[in-house]
């Protein structure tokens, strides 16, 4: 009996929570274009670097006292580390990064809507400005094809 009473209360809770909450709907044209852009550019002949550290994921990472500085992300793949320092400027991001060991000449910053290249210095450092918010993927180039690609991360 107790279980049934609980079920009734659970059903009432769901009905109450549904009120005023949005119902799931189809995606916007922009999301559809992003999905198609990612599909068209998905074939990358390079090892993929995965996120191994993200300051956003640390406990207290979004407390006001902890957000005065940039967000730090480290990705690693095929013996190469990509260290990123991401700062927000409205809807744009500034990404200062370092590839360790330095193995390329340029970093391509890819969004689902396009790509731009930024030169890398001899120490593997680069700065990408006016990067759009949302999903971004970085490709490290050394003159030929990409040597390393990061997975997509939302910035």
């Amino acid at each position: 009996m107790r279980g049934r009473g609980e079920d009734e209360r659970a059903d009432l809770l769901i009905a109450e929570l549904r009120r005023g909450r949005p119902e799931a709907g189809p995606m916007s044209d922009r999301v559809r274009r992003a999905a198609d852009g990612a599909f068209a550019a998905r074939a990358v002949e390079a090892p993929v670097a995965e996120v191994v550290d993200d300051s956003l994921e640390r406990p207290g990472g979004v407390r006001p006292s902890a957000v005065s500085g940039p967000r730090y992300v480290v990705l690693r793949g095929a013996g190469v580390e990509v260290r990123l320092e991401i700062s927000e400027h409205g809807d744009e991001r500034r990404v200062a990064g370092r590839v360790v060991p330095p193995l390329g000449e340029a970093v391509e910053v890819r969004s689902p809507f396009g790509a731009r290249e930024f030169a890398m210095d001899g120490g593997g450092g680069f700065t990408a400005r006016a990067v759009p918010r949302g999903p971004v993927r970085l490709l490290v180039h050394d003159g030929g094809g990409p040597r390393l690609a990061t997975r997509w991360i939302s910035m």
Binding site: P22, A24, M27, R30, A35, A38, W152
Partner: peptide
Amino acid sequence: VHCHGLAGQDAEDARQTVWCRLAE
């Protein structure tokens, strides 16, 4: 996306990232 309380541009970014991850 909705059950995590995301709306507006934040919800759009999350949806875009999911499809990028699937393509990858």
